[in-house]
């Protein structure tokens, strides 16, 4: 397609085409950036600045007057909020576990599915299904899986470990009511639900790796692992950066899985940061305080995303 366009005459008039090119680029930049700037300014910029200002007020939208409290909200969050540390730890725990595991599993599944000689489409669809499975079905099934007395997981444990192997274990494991097990149980469901999403990203990334790279490397006698390590992984780098960054951003703002499965219990061990913030805003009408929490989280996420950018850029130069 491109080869047919090549003509020596056009290649000759270089300086002129350069000028045209730059003008064309400016046009493209204007077309891309100006509407974008207007949109983001109106739709996100103003609300963010508004919220930031209101984080210094005792803001209740229903109230006629709002009291200025200075840094009071931030101070309360950092020093007096009894749950602040707990919800931050929960959120970090969730992110640190689900993001890497989700990424590795999705990469493995994507590579495996892509390597199949037949039924690729079928497997791609199957692994995407949890993403579209309804919240109701997801929560009913997973709560049943985790149920202590009649749940499938405990029944299997009872059958295999206790009845067959005669291990001295009580098979009534309280998956969702134990302070230590509830969070991992929610994480497992969350990884299951999100796997197909990340897989699709990797599939899209894998397809953009030109096959010539592999062929050239094979001619040079590269082994399989070397192909994966030195071609697939580095060329998936932009995708990895994306998956990791959005994973961190999404993980730190996790809300729905806990809301559906545990409502933050037991003992607030599964209450994430945004859940806490949501309650402050919409059940206590403390929007000012919720805003200060939002900007604290904003700063934390910003820090880690840029840290990640720095680390990954220096390692692979992307």
């Amino acid at each position: 397609m491109i080869a047919t366009r090549r003509s020596p005459a056009q290649a000759g008039a270089k300086s002129q085409s350069n000028r045209i090119r730059l003008a064309g680029q400016r046009g493209m930049i204007a077309l891309a950036v100006l509407p974008l700037a207007v949109f983001y300014l109106v739709w996100v910029g103003i609300p963010m600045i508004y919220t930031f200002i209101m984080s210094f007020y005792d803001w209740n939208p229903l109230s006629v007057t709002q009291t200025f409290v200075g840094a009071g909200n931030y101070l309360e969050a950092l020093t007096r909020d009894p749950l602040f540390k707990r919800v931050l730890i929960n959120t970090a725990y969730y992110t640190v576990v689900t993001v890497p595991i989700g990424l590795i599993l999705a990469l493995v599944v994507a590579v495996m599915v892509n390597s199949l000689p037949r039924f690729i489409g079928l497997f791609r669809a199957i692994y995407f299904l949890p993403v579209v499975t309804s919240v109701v079905a997801t929560s009913i099934i997973w709560r049943w899986l985790y149920q202590s007395r009649f749940g499938l997981i405990n029944q299997l444990i009872g059958m295999v470990l206790v009845d067959t192997l005669h291990l001295p274990i009580n098979p009534s494991i309280p998956w969702l009511t134990s302070r230590t097990l509830a969070m991992p149980a929610v994480m497992a469901m969350s990884i299951w639900k999100g796997l197909g999403f990340t897989m699709v990203l990797f599939l899209a990334g894998l397809t953009s790796i030109p096959s010539v790279y592999y062929e050239a490397a094979k001619i040079d006698g590269a082994g399989v692992w070397q192909l994966f390590r030195h071609i697939t992984i580095p060329l998936l780098q932009p995708t990895m950066i994306f998956v990791l960054a959005t994973g961190i951003i999404g993980g730190m703002q996790v809300f729905a899985p806990m809301y559906v499965m545990t409502q933050g219990g037991p003992a607030n061990m599964t209450k994430p940061f945004v859940y806490h913030l949501y309650e402050k805003a919409f059940t206590l009408y403390r929007f000012g305080y919720a805003s200060s929490l939002a900007f604290i989280l904003f700063a934390i996420i910003m820090f880690f995303v840029f840290l990640q950018f720095q680390v990954m850029k220096t390692r692979w130069e992307y």
Binding site: P174, T177, G264, G265, P266, A267
Partner: peptide
């Protein structure tokens, strides 16, 4: 109450 009475009781 749910988290520290109800859920503590069950666990």
């Amino acid at each position: 109450l749910r988290q520290y009475i109800g859920q503590n009781f069950v666990s």
